[in-house]
Amino acid sequence: MATILPYRGILPKIDDSTFVAATAVITGDVEIGPDSGIWYGCVVRGDVNGIRIGAGVNIQDGTIVHVSRPFGTIIGDRVTIGHMALIHACTLHADSFIGMKACVMDGAVVEQGALVAAGALVTPGKHIPAGQMWAGSPARYVRDVNAQDREMMAYIQPNYVQLAKEYKKTESEL
């Protein structure tokens, strides 16, 4: 069973349809929308500010989502966050994609349909426009998201929603 804890009297609000893996930890001022998945080894810690996670989001294994005093974290609908990413006090708009081991820092904004490549470091306050791909450390504009990228993004997100539903069903049968 996942560890879901209050912080300063605030208990996370998690939609009943969301899958939260047994080894995930969610604490404090966190709200998670329907049909999302918080996978194994994730930490979602809303202590000094709030975290809002939309519908159909998948936060893959080993990812950390945190906040800072000036900035909460907002993750829009249908966002994919790859394994072992660090999402810290930033905004990820709907349909954006964050690659494995990417780091998105305080005050950064990733607009709708943008893609942050695996291993990228999005520095504080950086603004990634809609439909662009950024990569590197520090992250920089590489090119516009192309048809192949959009196809990959459109494939992964709904598949993770389905996978989360299967895991949730299996868990309820135990």
Rank of each mutant, 00 (worst) to 15 (best):
E31S: 07
M153F: 11
I38Y: 00
T170L: 11
G56E: 00
V161Y: 12
Q60C: 12
I156Q: 12
T63H: 04
G131C: 01
G72V: 15
G99F: 02
P34S: 13
M105G: 06
G37P: 11
L121I: 00
D35E: 14
P124E: 03
V20P: 01
V44D: 03
E173L: 15
K168R: 11
R45K: 13
D149P: 10
G136H: 08
E166S: 12
H88T: 06
Q157K: 14
V43N: 12
I74L: 14
D15L: 02
I4Q: 04
G119F: 00
V57Q: 08
Y40D: 15
F19Y: 03
A154P: 09
L115P: 00
T73E: 07
P34R: 06
G113V: 01
A2V: 01
N49Q: 14
I74V: 15
D77P: 13
G46F: 05
A21H: 01
T3H: 02
H93Q: 13
D35I: 14
D35W: 11
P158F: 07
T91D: 03
K169N: 01
I59M: 05
D16A: 03
L163F: 10
R140H: 14
R143D: 11
K13Y: 12
I156H: 14
I53V: 12
G50N: 05
C103R: 15
H66D: 00
A22K: 01
T73N: 08
P34Y: 10
W134F: 03
G131E: 04
G76T: 05
V20I: 04
I64M: 11
V110L: 06
Y141H: 12
K169S: 02
E111M: 10
C103V: 15
I14S: 02
L115M: 06
E31H: 09
M100D: 10
G41M: 03
V43S: 14
I81V: 15
G72W: 15
E173S: 15
A118N: 02
G131P: 08
G62D: 07
A130W: 02
P70R: 15
G113M: 00
L92T: 04
K13D: 14
L174Y: 03
S137H: 12
V110Q: 05
C42H: 09
G33I: 08
S68H: 15
